[in-house]
Simulated assay, not measured.
Amino acid sequence: MPVYKSLTDNELFVLIQDGDKCAFEEIYERFNGLLYIYACKMVPDREDARDIVQEIFVYLWSNPDIKIKSQLSAYLYTAVRYKIFDWLDKNKSRTNYLQSLESFADRGDYVTDNYIREREFASLIEKEVSLLPPKMRLIFEMSRQQHLSQKEIAEILHLSDKTVKKQMSNALKVLRLKLTSFLLLAVILMLR
């Protein structure tokens, strides 16, 4: 399944909509742990948090007609958040929710730190993208900022689909290499 690892989230999502089980498994691998950690921050029971995340993946797989207006990651996090709200209503856990909210308020500095780290990471990504070779950077920005498909980029730039795909793959490899250490540090700090 190494070919799937090189695809973007949105490319994998298109394959999932066509019923590609391997693409779904790759998305599951990428997001299951992160969504679980996210759910655990708001749901006190670990099994309930796991169930919420699983429901999102079941829905993603069984509804190929889902329309996503932004990035798949944003869609998944939003879906988990709404599922948590449903869970809170069904379980009448308002007391636990209030306690969780108080705890969250007590950790205000932690939230501020996360926001600062998030902004620093966004800035670092922008810097690394600006250092890509010009053609690679242009293709990457057209894909990520203008949300153009590889085919659309190829038509606009008069390149082959294969060239665009290769340039995107190379850009992602470069960025992954440069940003991995920063991400590991951020995750370690988040889990403290």
Rank of each mutant, 00 (worst) to 15 (best):
S149L: 08
K151R: 13
Q99V: 06
Y110G: 00
L138E: 15
L148Y: 02
L101P: 02
E120A: 07
L157D: 06
L138H: 10
H147W: 06
Q145K: 14
P134A: 15
I66G: 00
T163F: 07
S149W: 00
M142R: 07
I156V: 14
L148T: 05
A105L: 13
E128R: 05
L88G: 06
K90F: 14
V164E: 03
R119D: 11
T78I: 00
L159N: 05
E102W: 08
M142P: 00
L98Q: 10
L159E: 09
E155K: 04
S130Y: 09
E128A: 04
I66E: 03
T112I: 14
Y77D: 01
R144D: 14
L124C: 04
V80Y: 03
K135G: 03
L101C: 04
D109H: 09
H158S: 15
Y82Q: 02
M168W: 07
R144P: 00
D86R: 04
F121L: 08
R81P: 02
T163M: 05
Q99H: 13
E141M: 08
K127S: 15
A74K: 07
L98D: 10
K90A: 15
E141V: 06
M136G: 05
H147Q: 14
E155H: 03
K135V: 15
H158G: 12
Q71R: 15
F104M: 09
V80P: 00
K90P: 07
Q146S: 15
S103D: 15
S100N: 10
F140E: 04
A154G: 08
I68E: 03
L131R: 12
Q150A: 10
K127A: 13
A74E: 12
Y110P: 02
K166T: 11
F85A: 14
M168F: 02
L72P: 01
Q146I: 08
